[in-house]
């Protein structure tokens, strides 16, 4: 709509303002207010109920000296980096394969995407069953004759996070593939023709022409994956409940346990503030690039 100066009146355009009340309340009270509240209360020593008794950075010191939190962070790092790399690579390669004007494209796409419709709980439980060492993949391969074969990620503290990664990738790669496919379809056909005329091999075209052209798609995908990774919770609860021991704990679970089971609210607040911080590290540069740049143009 055309922008023209309007008299500043509270009751102008009243219906629209009434309609926007839910949004305003949500944005201000829940999103902004709730976040600030949690951050502020992470500097108190609230236990069962929130109360204002300032303890400075004590909660954070305790947080970073708790082995369970450190393991959670380490797991999140491994899970995050692996799932970022694998889902981008696999997602892109599947999208590139589907983009070859093949038959049954819709069938293949439906198959790759269907796990995304399932909840993390369902995903976690299925993979818990498949990775069950007594009945699942390990026992099947042992039955085939390879007696010493060992693959029991859910019972081995050293590799349990990779067991969760397998399930997470199964659930989420389809989405990345779809985004990548949309990106590939958005690229002008003439680019391909030009590359073919110049005799550039297909893989080189992808690597040096198509992927750089798809930079915005990659960045958006990256932000989506990253904000999803920090939230990983249901999957771990369903697949391992954090076990064996505390080997597959993640920050979201730490926060939940402290807040709702451990009656140690401020610890939970401190943990969630750290989660917020890690998201902001990704989010702010992105928002700056995405929106800050546009305004200047």
């Amino acid at each position: 709509m055309a922008q023209y100066p309007r008299p500043v009146q509270l009751f102008r355009n009243l219906n629209a303002k009434i309609a926007a009340i839910p949004m305003i309340v949500t944005a201000v009270v829940i999103f902004a207010g709730g976040t600030i509240w949690t951050v502020v209360y992470s500097f108190t020593n609230s236990k069962l109920l929130p109360r204002v008794k300032w303890v400075g950075l004590d909660q954070y010191e305790r947080l970073w000296s708790t082995s369970r939190w450190l393991i959670s962070i380490e797991n999140l790092m491994i899970y995050g980096v692996c799932s970022l790399i694998f889902s981008l690579v696999i997602g892109f390669m599947l999208a590139a394969l589907l983009d070859q004007k093949i038959r049954f494209e819709n069938t293949f796409r439906s198959i790759f995407l269907f796990p995304f419709a399932l909840s993390f709980i369902v995903t976690g439980l299925v993979w818990q069953w498949i990775l069950n060492p007594d009945f699942g993949v390990q026992s099947v391969i042992r039955e085939l004759g390879w007696e010493s074969f060992s693959f029991d990620p859910l019972y081995n503290p050293n590799i349990v996070i990779y067991g969760i990664l397998i399930a997470g990738l199964w659930q989420g790669t389809g989405l990345i593939m779809c985004l990548m496919l949309a990106g590939l379809r958005g690229i002008d056909e003439d680019v391909w023709k030009a590359a073919r005329v110049d005799g550039i091999p297909v893989w080189k075209t992808y690597l040096f022409i198509i992927i750089p052209m798809m930079r915005p798609v990659f960045i958006t995908t990256l932000v989506i994956i990253a904000s999803g990774i920090v939230r990983v919770y249901d999957l771990v609860v369903a697949q391992t409940s954090g076990g064996p021991g505390i080997a597959s704990e993640v920050p979201a679970k730490y926060v939940y346990d402290k807040m709702f089971l451990g009656q140690n609210l401020a610890q939970g607040f401190a943990g969630s503030t750290m989660m917020l911080l890690s998201v902001l590290i990704v989010l702010i540069p992105w928002a700056y690039l995405e929106f800050g740049g546009k305004k200047r143009v």
């Binding site: 944005a27 201000v28 709730g34 976040t35 807040m259 989660m275």
Partner: peptide
């Protein structure tokens, strides 16, 4: 408000869980 709302989509839910319990 809209910008705050969209930003809110990326904020980890964990930060807002307890304030919502109180509300």
């Amino acid at each position: 408000f809209f910008t705050i709302l969209i930003f809110g989509a990326f904020i980890p839910y964990q930060v807002m869980l307890y304030p919502i319990v109180i509300i």
